[in-house]
Amino acid sequence: MKVLTANRLFDGEAVWLAADHSWAETLPAAHVAHDEADEERLAAHGKLSAARNEVVDVELIDVQLVDGAIVPLRLRERIRAAGPTVRGDLGKQARAVPALAAA
């Protein structure tokens, strides 16, 4: 399973591609690709969005579903989705509805 992630061009915010092809600021809103064809659609949209100068550093990342929640396999991506593990007051985790615990 994969989701498509990137950083928004104008402010660098970590974002994930949602089902409606908008870039969501939190991981739970991401569209999860369950097969290769879906992954290719995500990647193609990412390429297009980068070409439109909306985002940079577009990447498909591996995730799994844990109790219905999207959890990236790599710690790096879990930290991107939450914020610095040493500053709970910063990043997505500091929002009213916490996005995801990193560790």
């Binding site: 950083n7 061009l9 660098g12 915010e13 970590a14 100068n53 930290i79 991107r80």
Partner: peptide, 28 residues
């Protein structure tokens, strides 16, 4: 020019690096 899309990321990246701007995990 980058924000307007007049230059690409490949063109812009070396320019921003020359000015101390990196892209990290959460932000620039």
């Amino acid at each position: 020019r980058r924000l307007k899309g007049e230059i690409t990321e490949d063109q812009f990246k070396p320019l921003r690096l020359q000015n101390g701007v990196y892209l990290q995990l959460h932000a620039y």
